[in-house]
Write a protein that binds this DNA or RNA. Structure first.
Lengths: 116, 116
DNA sequence: TGGGATATATCCACAGTGGGTATAATTAGA
DNA sequence: TCTAATTATACCCACTGTGGATATATCCCA
């Protein structure tokens, strides 16, 4: 597994997907809805972006597909559930650090207010 | 002139260029050096990226080329100086707001510490 | 049973980027 | 004075990430 920093800057869709699965495993379609909800409707991941991002992230070891499924009465067999890996968390933290630095720069340039 | 929000998300190079010319007019090569310095060497704009970004930004009205030049003994006639426009400042502020929101999301997901 | 929402997947076109190359003027040094 | 390095702008090619469209299939409800 490579150095997390070597993945930076993360493609925006990738970072949003990592945040959407940070707290619990989710399937593709649920990730789209979660991202839309978390961003207040600002970001709507297209299906094309989502599934190609997920495929890449599986290869990179940021996500794994889980076998665990919810109780049959809440499940849908079409779904495929994804879980963030420890490495995925490291990469997400590295990207969060980079973005935090960027906001500091924006503040120094007078484009953002003094405190977040 | 369009709505500043319609330019979001800003290409990373564009946002860095806006920050580099926020405080004073700069020429192309100086922008590359300024961005490298501000990011602590993390981001090195390639010449290809820089000049294509500048061209686009001039068309979009984010930058203008200035006629004012430094005293001849400090000048270099090959240089072309760029200045951020009022609209460029609006767009930069909008992008800064978007990034600030993103860092808040990262914090809510546990990927960034509580305060910046 | 029909229709809309849910779900995954693939294809195409396009924008932004890095790296390389070209060209030229200016400056520094031998 | 000739040469080499630095500064500066511009263009080209290949690659990646993205949105939008399309395809296929299932689920749920009226």
């Amino acid at each position: 597994m490579e150095n997390p920093e070597s993945f930076l800057p993360l493609p925006p869709a990738t970072f949003h997907i990592l945040m959407a699965v940070a707290d619990e495993d989710r399937h593709g379609y649920a990730i789209i809805q979660e991202v839309e909800q978390r961003t207040g409707g600002e970001l709507r991941l297209s299906a094309g972006t989502l599934y190609r991002s997920i495929q890449r992230m599986l290869e990179q070891g940021l996500l794994v597909e889980t076998q665990e499924r919810p109780a049959p009465e809440f499940d849908d067999e079409r779904r495929r559930y994804y879980r963030i890996t420890g490495f995925g968390q490291q990469v997400a933290r590295a990207e969060a650090r980079r973005l935090t630095q960027l906001v500091k720069l924006a503040r120094a340039s007078g484009f953002a207010p003094g405190r977040v």
